[in-house]
Design a protein around this nucleic acid. Structure first.
Lengths: 204, 204
DNA sequence: ACCTGAACACCGTTCAAGT
DNA sequence: ACCTGAACACCGTTCAAGT
């Protein structure tokens, strides 16, 4: 991983995109999202502010990467914990576990939700988390198209809930889970209606 | 509306909180949320930047007021349109109308969703919109406690959906309405389960 | 109470230059 | 390609002073 060549003039080659994102994540954890700043990152990794534009085109790209970083931490927890992967567990409990995991990670960093709400959620880590969710929804009986829409719906609920609960700071876990179950009941009703479609009326 | 007294030295007395918020709303409509700026507002109403701190304690308070302003526009549309108030219409259609109305208003102003997601949604206009929603959910058969939770759940869905669809700009109306109906099915299933509780098992 | 001028302590980003 | 110094064009907010 370390370049063989000794200290030389010119380019520093010491840094990487990952080093920038690590610094950004550290600032997020210590100071909150509105304090992760190009200048702060630069100071932390020991370069001039404008040097970070060697690695990212603008601040938005850094924040996109930071959102991905956050989802990477979530995904790491998913893969080595069978609360999510064990297909013998009831699907609803698995969704609960995953949703609470994501919510906990978001609540741990001030303003982190807003980072995700502004990101496109299409990086590799976002897809990895999404894939886990799709598997669970498939186990719940959703066909692939419905599972994709259901996965997006769950993202909306999780991110929206956390954003609003950090805004008014209520005892919101109950509301979060209550809404989650209403939503899941709706998904399941949909599966039942699709099954009826094969033999009865009411197409779509 | 115009004060009778002639030009005099000292305090200008020309301005009001509302004048500040009108300027903020104009900037939001013309330039987007990240360009509504204390300095821009001050320029627009013709005072020095620091003079707006006579009316609001800080920028966050101005943005809170702006969010309320936005909900006021929505509420104005609700009260004089019987698509929302006509209790003879099916409740689901009325929820659809209200949700789409709110969504349209949010999509009309770049970044407006994030203003609402950061606000506490407890001002008079937020409550007015909430009251309309509560009425509809009561007509759908929800008891007051469930209607309150359902109203919050709908806020989460509407704001979360709009935030994510402006983030990746898909053809998202279908997904929005699909998720909305899943969610409403879940609410209705809940009403059914409550009714069963009176005569059968499965408490909570 | 309402307003101004000036300043403080920041931002993101660009440009010219060095290796 | 990677980095620096200096600058540009902004921010929100505070302070002292005027009426």
């Amino acid at each position: 991983m370390v370049d063989a060549r000794p200290v030389r003039p010119g380019p520093r080659r010491t840094l990487s995109e990952q080093a920038i994102l690590d610094a950004a994540l550290a600032l997020l954890a210590e100071l909150g999202a509105d304090r992760v700043t190009i200048r702060g990152i630069a100071t932390r990794v020991g370069i001039a502010p404008n040097a970070v534009y060697t690695y990212f085109p603008d601040k938005a790209a850094v924040l996109d990467g930071l959102a991905e970083q956050l989802l990477g931490r979530v995904d790491d927890n998913l893969v080595d914990d069978d609360r999510f992967t064990d297909s013998s567990r009831p699907w609803r409990e698995r969704v609960h576990s995953l949703a609470l995991e994501l919510r906990t990670e978001l609540l741990a960093h001030q303003g982190a939700v807003h980072l995700l709400l502004r990101s496109s959620l299409d990086g590799p880590n976002a897809n990895a988390v999404g894939a886990t969710l799709l598997t669970i929804l498939a186990d719940a009986g959703l066909d692939p198209a419905s599972a994709a829409k259901g996965s997006h719906l769950l993202n909306v609920h999780i991110l929206g809930s956390v954003a609003l609960e950090t805004a008014d700071a209520a005892a919101a876990t109950d509301q979060f889970l209550w809404g989650l179950d209403r939503l899941l009941d709706g998904l399941i009703t949909y599966v039942g209606a699709q099954r009826d479609d094969r033999t009865g009326p009411r197409p779509r």
